[in-house]
Design a protein around this nucleic acid. Structure first.
Lengths: 190, 190
DNA sequence: CCATAAGCGGATGAGTCATCCGCTTCACTG
DNA sequence: CAGTGAAGCGGATGACTCATCCGCTTATGG
């Protein structure tokens, strides 16, 4: 299960590649591995060795944001009011989805290339289950909504927001939160 | 502005191509023009002549469904109760988006390849404006929601539904309608 | 410094895309 | 019906992307 540590030069190449990829994603450029390799001044094979598919590279780019979100979920579980806990976390989730274009496709994908990503997604799903169970027990939300709906709904909001093409990040965030509140309003049982 | 009528053989080829493309879309296969040409037993150039891009072909495939939706919108405008009119039309829209996989990308795209598609989309936007205006005036919906939100929200629901991969068309429709009702509940001012 | 294995790079074959042009077929005329 | 011009056809082809393979380079531990 443990991977032997990378040689120093290999590790640096890997970092270069991820950095380059991050810039690509931020600019909306498609993650073409040959292209990333050239930009990172590295042989094609080097990229393919570290990241067999564009998805693997994308997941690596998205990793920090996802880890942060998992921590946020754990934090939400310490909030006393179940409704505030749920709403607060969903808000953070939408902000994360909109802030980093690498994140949504990772959540939308049924299956992950990286072991670690799968683990994080599972962790997030668990947190959702707990948050929803608490909210259900407190009777503050629609009893039909389950944990399996949450990720799709969040991805749907992010998608809807991005259908408004040609909008700055700030307006996008505003619109995304408005859509989230729409759903939250439909979900809430006051 | 008028296109001279196609020669008989050309028209038949065109129909073959669209039929083939429709089958591709239904099967979830990507619309690769070379591939479609081979399947339709037609030269590559013939496909490219009729449809310069995959989008143009896709829009043609989606056309009947979109026209039907526009008629449905006009019908909704004859319904007396503004809330029922809006809800009924949105329900039909979601059903259309989920039933025909060619439709969502056409709505999600900022710009259309075909003149006719643009016209239809504009027509739909107008219908939305009227439906929303009536609903606003009757005070039955959240006053912040505008016509520009409707298409993105509908596409978002369709997208969220499709994130549940590996589900039959029936379950999908059910889930899509459930998500729509969530939003409608958030939108409604009873 | 040496031995060795980890890592590198880019040439390359397989595959896709979209154009171009010589040939075929339709539609119309007398 | 035969002739003719234009509309349409098809597939060969060059440009481009993808991902693998293998001979060479370099870090690392002794």
């Amino acid at each position: 299960m443990s991977t032997s540590p990378l040689r120093k030069d290999a590790a640096q190449n890997r970092r270069h590649i991820v950095e380059t990829a991050r810039r690509y994603v931020a600019d909306g450029k498609p993650l073409q591995l040959n292209d990333v390799a050239r930009t990172a001044s590295v042989g094609v094979a080097t990229v393919y060795r570290h990241f067999p598919t564009p998805e693997a590279l994308l997941e690596t780019v998205a990793l920090p944001a996802i880890e942060k979100l998992v921590r946020r979920a754990e934090h939400a579980l310490t909030e006393a009011d179940p409704w505030i806990a749920l709403r607060g976390f969903l808000t953070a989730a939408i902000e994360a989805l909109l802030a980093d274009p690498a994140v949504p496709p990772v959540f939308a994908a049924a299956t992950s290339s990286l072991e670690h990503t799968s683990d994080l997604k599972r962790g997030l799903a668990d947190a959702f289950t707990k948050l929803l169970t608490r909210a259900h027990q407190a009777g503050v939300i629609d009893s039909n909504v389950t944990e399996a709906d949450m990720i799709p709904l969040m991805c749907g909001i992010a998608y809807a927001t991005n259908v408004h093409s040609a909008l700055g990040p700030t307006e996008r965030a505003t619109i995304g939160l408005r859509y989230l509140n729409l759903i939250l309003a439909g979900l809430h049982r006051p």
